[in-house]
Nucleic acid binder design. Structure first.
Length: 460
RNA sequence: GGCGCGGUGGCAGAGUGGUUAUGCAGCGGACUGCAACUCCGUAUACGCCGGUUCGAUUCCGACCCGCGCCUCCA
């Protein structure tokens, strides 16, 4: 049984899909005005694991993750670069797709773009106005939070507190300080679309509600995102979705914790972010993925070079188990991971990825110790279990040989030649020459290992 | 001010009312021509103070410290 921590209830709940034949998952995607940082990547990787898990448990999972390609930050970025909006957003959408692919995440089934859904958004806004949940004022359309009795239920706040705690100047056309924009007017130099309220553009929250409604339905099973989206974004989505369609909108809300740098939240506004793109220059994507999964998704994760180095060492040891001691082992193609496998049960417990990784190491240890005839099954077990986490999908020898190719200035053929020369030297008991070659390669970052089946080499 | 989260061994990081987390790094040993990999063994821990209990890192209360949201943000 799968249990998930639901922000709405505040504790772990048994997951019961509305329709077990069609589980629906929506995750908030990026606003494409910049390259994404590792904090943006965390929910993508976390919910990728959830997607893999759900796909094992249910016959059909529909996973959607949006692209926000209209937003004031985008307009600002365009003004700075002088680039047309679609050129800029397409550039960063492509970059996002590439970066996430490098982290070995699966493509969602649906990747809707906000600008393709302006019609759905205006239709939803009209519904909200018709039902008395929204009003037009000063060229804007605003959601009236007081029209919704349980507004604030996700983030645990009430309207009185919000009025008292308002830290920003409230626009005078708002009936209540908590009222939020559904549609706002665009000036002539800003991107905009014709609407019943004049030329304008959508507010931030409406796109997700409209796209969920169109692609997934009136009610979805799981909606995920970063903790900072709980308020106001997801609270307002609930308001829109519930009030427009008279449903509960989302049944399970899941939120991942932040990534910190030196104990402080990593964010674009603080300027202490690490771009995925830059990190990929130094570490394989799988190392970044492993680091992101090394702690529980709801805990803060302190990001550092040491974290990545430890992740790489740990991942190496798992790949070493697959690589073996020189013997040739083919994974058993008929192996199927049992329902009570420790890696699976760890993930079923609210995605306990650190425990799952621990269980992975236990399988690797058994594989390392196993008799040759037991290795095909254990190798298949390790790969099948790791697949749930999106790990260990590379060829083991390619993992070691290719991961830092180019750093040492040696191509694989040259290395193979030196290794062959050393093997001959060893045969001739010329250990001085053999060690000289090994030291030379070691200085270039290449380790040699003598196995029963011959010498093999690894980078990094 | 309102709401919420967390403080675990050198580092990362799970978990539990009594029994080894796990990984990385360290130390000792086996293997090896020497190494590497692997295996075996091993040290170091649960913020502080009370309470409940036969027994608490795990439950309860107070305190200290750190962090987050309340405003764009994964």
């Amino acid at each position: 049984m799968l249990t998930l921590h639901n922000t709405l209830t505040g504790h772990k709940d048994a997951f019961q899909p509305l329709d077990p034949q069609r589980v629906t998952l929506y995750v908030c995607g990026p606003t494409v005005y910049n390259y994404v940082h590792i904090g943006n990547a965390r929910p993508v990787v976390v919910f990728d694991v959830l997607y893999r898990l759900l796909s094992r448990l249910y016959p059909k999972v529909v996973y959607a993750r949006n692209i926000t390609d209209i937003d004031d930050k985008i307009i600002t970025a365009c003004a700075e670069t002088g680039e047309p909006m679609t050129a800029l957003t397409e550039r960063f959408t492509d970059a996002f797709r590439e970066d996430m692919a490098a982290l070995n995440t699966l493509q969602p089934d649906i990747v809707p773009k906000a600008t393709d859904h302006i019609g759905e958004m205006t239709a939803m806004i009209e519904t909200l106005i018709a039902k008395g949940h929204a009003y037009e004022a000063d060229g804007h359309v605003l959601f009236a939070v007081e029209s919704m009795p349980d507004y604030g239920k996700l983030s645990g706040r009430n309207l009185e507190d919000m009025r008292a705690g308002a830290r920003v100047e409230v626009a005078d056309y708002k009936r209540h300080p908590g009222d939020f924009v559904l549609w706002k007017p665009s000036s002539d130099d800003q991107p905009g679309w014709e609407s019943p309220w004049g030329r304008g553009r959508p507010g931030w929250h409406i796109e997700c509600s409209a796209m969920i409604h169109k692609h997934l339905g009136d009610v979805i099973d799981i909606h995920g995102g970063g903790q900072d989206l709980i308020f106001p974004h997801h609270e307002n989505e609930i308001a829109q979705g519930c009030c427009a369609h008279g449903t509960e909108y989302v049944r399970y809300w899941m939120h991942n914790g932040y990534i910190n740098i030196d104990g402080e939240k990593m964010s674009k506004s603080l300027g202490n972010f690490r771009l995925v793109r830059d990190l990929l220059e130094k570490f394989p994507g799988e190392v970044l993925r492993f680091a992101l999964l090394s702690s529980h998704y709801r805990s803060p994760l302190n990001f550092s070079a040491e974290l990545l180095e430890q992740a790489e060492s740990s991942l190496d040891s798992l790949y070493y188990a697959l690589l073996g001691r020189g013997e040739t082992v083919h994974a058993d193609p008929d192996f199927r991971l049992p329902e009570d496998h420790p890696v699976l049960t760890a993930l079923l417990d609210d995605l306990n990825t650190s425990e799952a990784i621990s269980a992975l190491h236990a399988v690797a240890a058994r594989l390392n110790k196993a008799a040759l005839e037991e290795k095909p099954t254990l190798k298949a077990e390790l790969q099948a279990a790791a697949q749930l986490l999106g790990l260990l999908e590379a060829d083991p020898s390619a993992w070691f040989q290719d991961k830092k190719a180019g750093d040492d200035g040696l191509d694989n053929a040259t290395i193979d030649g030196l290794v062959a020369e050393r093997t001959q030297a060893k045969k001739d008991k010329n250990f001085a020459r053999a060690d000289e070659i090994r030291d030379q390669l070691k200085d270039a970052g290449i380790q040699l290992e003598d196995t029963r089946e011959g010498t093999r080499w690894t980078r990094g």
